[in-house]
C-alpha cells in the first residue's frame, strides 16, 4: 500500500494548483474549474483518510461526506455557470479584466 502522505501531498498540490488558478486566470470558466479543483482536493483527502482507517476496510463516514459534498460542488458550479452564461450573453466577454468596472 502506498503510504498515506503521498496522497496528502497530492491533495495539497491540488489545493495549491486550484488557488493558483483562481489567482492568475482571467477566463471566467477557468475560475469555475479552479473552484472544482479546490473542492476535489478536499474530497481526495476524505477518501484517502477513510481508506486508511483500518486496513482492508473503508470508513463509511468519509465516503458519505464526499457523496454529499460532490453535489454541493455541482450546485456551486451550476450557479457560477449561469452567471457566466448571462455575462457572456450580454457583455460578450469571458475575461474578468474586462468586467473590472468596480474599483478596489
Amino acid at each position: 500500500m502506498i503510504p498515506l502522505v503521498y496522497y496528502l501531498a497530492g491533495a495539497i498540490a491540488l489545493y495549491i494548483i486550484g488557488m493558483y488558478c483562481l489567482a492568475s486566470k482571467r477566463n471566467m470558466i477557468r475560475l469555475v474549474i479552479g473552484i472544482e479543483i479546490l473542492m476535489n482536493a478536499a474530497h481526495l483527502t476524505f477518501i484517502v483518510f477513510s481508506a486508511y482507517r483500518t486496513v482492508g476496510y473503508i470508513d463509511p463516514l468519509g465516503h458519505a461526506i464526499v457523496i454529499m459534498s460532490i453535489v454541493f460542488a455541482g450546485c456551486v458550479t451550476a450557479v457560477a455557470l449561469t452567471i457566466v452564461t448571462y455575462a457572456y450573453r450580454h457583455y460578450g466577454t469571458l475575461d474578468v479584466r474586462k468586467l473590472r468596472r468596480l474599483k478596489g
Binding site: L31, I35, A42, F49, G62, A87, H90, Y91, L99
Partner: peptide, 28 residues
C-alpha cells in the same frame, strides 16, 4: 451586480472548499 456576484461567488466558494479541506484533516 453580475460582476460583484461572480467575484463573491469565486471567493466564497474558495472559502467553502478551504473549510472542507480543514474538515477532512479533522476527520483524518
Amino acid at each position: 451586480s453580475i460582476e460583484a456576484g461572480f467575484k463573491y461567488l469565486i471567493m466564497s466558494a474558495a472559502g467553502s472548499a478551504t473549510i472542507l479541506l480543514a474538515m477532512s484533516f479533522l476527520y483524518g
